[in-house]
């Protein structure tokens, strides 16, 4: 026969466990909807960056204030993120499971080709196509340059800052 006091303690422990699990298990989650995003110490673009998160990463919402959300990352960092860089649904992007499966079947490495590292030059297939269709050297050069064209992330950040866009919105 179980002692009533022990049963009471057991029930309290169980209740606390459920509450703790529940708070964690039912916490509202958002996903990073931008290529990269910063977690800041406060809810303005002037506050210090306390962490960086990547596309698709899940974040637990702790609080909200206007266009900003207080979040906790899976690594345990806590801070504010501009809400425009998050989504309530998990983004699939260009790397969804089926596409990865297709890539795997073809023997390619999806992760190596989805990075914006910037391929240079026409690849074999499009070069062959250009030869077959008589595309001029000038037009090949245009697509070649376009393929290699990159703007550093810092310049994009500066552009957003100047325009009062994204997290720099006034």
């Amino acid at each position: 026969m179980t002692h009533p006091r022990s049963l009471g303690v057991l029930l309290i422990v169980l209740w606390i466990s459920v509450c703790v699990w529940g708070a964690d298990g039912w916490a509202e989650t958002v996903y990073v909807q931008a290529k990269t995003a910063q977690i800041r110490a406060g809810k303005t673009s002037l506050d210090a960056v306390v962490g960086n998160v990547k596309f698709g990463e899940s974040l637990e919402i702790v609080g909200r204030d206007g266009s900003w959300m207080e979040v906790k990352t899976s690594a345990g960092a806590r801070g504010w993120i501009f809400a425009g860089k998050t989504s309530t649904s998990k983004p699939s992007g260009g790397n969804d499971t089926l596409a990865r499966l297709g890539q795997s079947m073809r023997g390619g490495d999806a992760s190596a080709t989805t990075a914006s590292a910037g391929a240079r030059g026409l690849d074999k297939a499009s070069e062959g196509y250009a030869n077959r269709t008589g595309v001029s050297a000038r037009d090949r050069e245009v697509v070649d340059r376009m393929t290699a064209y990159q703007i550093p992330d810092q310049e994009v950040e500066e552009f957003l800052r100047e325009g009062g866009l994204g997290e720099y919105a006034k």
Partner: peptide
Amino acid sequence: LPIGYEEESSIGQAMALQ
């Protein structure tokens, strides 16, 4: 299966040429 990025990239380049 859906087209992977490697193939998409070649298709994109060829279409861009046109």
